[in-house]
């Protein structure tokens, strides 16, 4: 099946059969411009492939959508600071047991340990600071590379 790709995104799709043969894993690679207007397109594109994988329940599809939108926003705005000469790289592995999505920017990175939880009553009316917390709540596993400019999110099949 061929899925339409927005012109501004560079996409590479590869399918490979797992050794355990319990299903096919689809790998996608995307190069995304540092433009927040692209976020919806990328999320839609990934979700169309997730739907092809055909096992995510409604809530999991929703969680992936929000987590990816969030990670892209962080990468474009905080990481690349919306610099048009920089890109965000998305690598997605859509398999029978899990969805794993890696989002990498070209910024200097940050230390995720320094990000505080936004749940204190005095923090509730702050307009920002919920992004990473939300990602951690929505997927099963979140990891960063040492530099802190790449996040890897995994959601397991239920």
């Amino acid at each position: 099946m061929t899925l339409p790709v927005p012109a501004s995104l560079r996409l590479c799709v590869r399918r490979r059969r797992l050794p355990a043969a319990n299903g096919a894993t689809t790998e996608l690679g995307l190069r995304v411009p540092s433009d927040v207007a692209c976020i919806e397109q990328v999320v839609d594109l990934l979700m169309r492939h997730c739907t092809c994988a055909n096992w995510l329940c409604r809530r999991s599809r929703f969680n992936v959508r929000v987590a990816v939108a969030e990670a892209l926003a962080n990468a474009i705005v905080a990481g690349n600071q919306e610099n048009p000469s920089k890109s965000v790289f998305v690598r997605a592995e859509l398999g029978p047991e899990h969805v794993r999505i890696e989002v990498t920017d070209e910024g200097t990175g940050f230390n995720p340990e320094t990000v505080r939880e936004p749940l204190d009553p005095e923090d509730l009316d702050r307009p920002n600071g919920r992004g990473l917390f939300l990602i951690r709540q929505l997927v099963d596993d979140v990891r960063f590379n040492d530099q802190g400019n790449s996040i890897c999110m995994t959601l397991r099949r239920r």
Binding site: V66, E70, G131
Partner: peptide
């Protein structure tokens, strides 16, 4: 469809 943390903010 969905809201991100910026939307909540």
């Amino acid at each position: 469809g969905y809201i991100d943390s910026s939307g909540l903010g």
